[in-house]
Computed example of a mutant assay.
Amino acid sequence: MDTEINISALAERTHDLLADLRHAAPRPLLITGGSASERNALANALCVLFGSQPVIVGMQLAMILGELDHKPRVQDVLDAIDLIVASAGPNPVLTRIEGLFSPAVPLNAVDALVRMSRQNPICAVWPGRVDYNRLRYAQLGHPECVNEDASRAVIIDLTKENGGLK
C-alpha cells in the first residue's frame, strides 16, 4: 500500500457514515482490505468514539448455538443474531465474524449482517476481500466460501485512499 492510513480521521468519517446509515436502507458497513491489524485498529478506534467494546461475533454465536440440544436451524441463528445485536448497544462494532461462515450455520453470512443492520447500523470487520464488487471469503469450492454482491453493504476499503470514501 502506497499511503499510510490515518486511522483516527477514517474512524471519524466512518462514525459520521454510520450516523447517516440510521436514515437509509439497512446495510452493514464492512471494513475490508489492508492488514488484519489495520482493520482491527479502525474497529478499535470506532469503539473508542462510541464508548463501547468490540462484539466478538464468532465466540458469542458459538456459545449461544452450543447450548442447543439439536443441530442449529435458521430460526436458531436468527434468534442468536438478534440477541447478539440487542446486547451490543446502539453502535455495534463486530469483529471475528468468521463463525458466520461456518457450514454449521445454516444462514448466509451477508444475509446475517444485513439482518443485524436492520436493528441498528452496524460496522463489521470483513475478514475476506472485495474483488470486482463482490464480497469474497475463502476459495471457491471451500465449505465456507462466500461470493456475494458487495452492493448489499457499505464498504470501507483500506487499500484505497480515505478508505474509498468520497
Results as ranks from 00 to 15, higher is better:
Asp79Gln: 07
Glu67Gly: 13
Arg22Val: 11
Asp131Arg: 13
Pro90Gln: 13
Asp111Pro: 03
Asp157Lys: 02
Ile84Cys: 03
Val57Gln: 04
Gly89Thr: 09
Asp2Thr: 15
Asn40Ser: 14
Asn120Trp: 15
Asp79Gly: 06
Ala109Trp: 07
Glu161Pro: 08
Pro72Lys: 00
Arg73Asn: 06
Asn162Gly: 05
Asn6Thr: 09
Ala86Arg: 13
Asn162Arg: 08
Arg129Trp: 14
Tyr137Gln: 12
Leu100Val: 00
Asp149Ile: 10
Met63Tyr: 11
Pro54Thr: 07
Ala25Ile: 13
Pro26Ser: 13
Ser117Glu: 09
Ala11Val: 00
Pro72Phe: 00
Ile31Phe: 02
Arg134Ala: 04
Ala62Leu: 05
Glu38Leu: 15
Asn162Tyr: 09
Asp76Arg: 02
Leu83Val: 08
Ile81Phe: 08
Ile84Ala: 02
Thr32Met: 02
Ala9Glu: 15
Gly99Met: 08
Glu38Trp: 14
Ile31Val: 13
Pro72Thr: 01
Gln119Asn: 12
Leu49Cys: 05
Gly58Gln: 06
Gly128Asp: 02
Asn91Phe: 14
Ala62Trp: 11
Leu140Ala: 12
Asp149Gln: 09
Lys71Asp: 12
Arg27Gly: 08
Val154Lys: 04
Asn120Arg: 12
Pro90Ile: 07
Ala138Trp: 13
Asn91Glu: 13
Asn44Asp: 15
Leu165Arg: 01
Asp69Leu: 07
Ile7Val: 14
Asp157Ile: 01
Ala36Thr: 15
Tyr132Asp: 13
Ala138Pro: 07
Val85Cys: 03
Gln119Ser: 12
Gly33Trp: 11
Ile97Thr: 09
Leu135Arg: 06
Ala36Ile: 14
Glu161Gly: 07
Gly164Cys: 05
Met116Arg: 09
Glu144Gln: 15
Val77Lys: 07
Asn162Leu: 02
Ala45Thr: 04
Arg22Asn: 15
Val105Met: 01
Asn162Gln: 04
Leu65Glu: 05
Ile56Met: 08
Lys71Gly: 06
Leu46Ile: 10
Ile155Tyr: 14
Ile84Tyr: 06
Gly34Tyr: 14
Gly141Ala: 05
Gly99Ser: 00
Ala138Thr: 10
Arg152Thr: 07
Asn147Cys: 10
Val57Trp: 05
Leu68Trp: 00
Asn162Ala: 11
Arg134Pro: 00
Met1Lys: 14
Asp16Glu: 14
Asn44Gln: 14
Met116Asp: 07
Lys160Trp: 06
Glu98Asp: 12
Met59Tyr: 09
Gly163Met: 00
Pro121His: 03
Glu67Phe: 01
Pro26Tyr: 07
Asp2Leu: 15
Val55Glu: 03
Leu21Cys: 12
Leu68Asp: 02
Asp82Pro: 04
Ile84Asp: 03
Asp149Glu: 07
Ala153Glu: 10
Gly89Pro: 13
Arg152Ala: 08
Gly51Ala: 10
Arg96Asn: 12
Ala41Cys: 09
Gln139Glu: 15
Asn44Trp: 04
Leu10Pro: 13
Ile97His: 09
Val146Pro: 03
Ser52Met: 04
Glu148Gly: 06
Ala112Cys: 08
Val105Ser: 00
Val110Met: 10
His70Gln: 11
Ala45Arg: 06
Pro54Phe: 11
Gly141Asn: 06
Trp126Ser: 06
Asp76Phe: 10
Trp126Asn: 02
Arg13Ile: 02
Ile81Tyr: 11
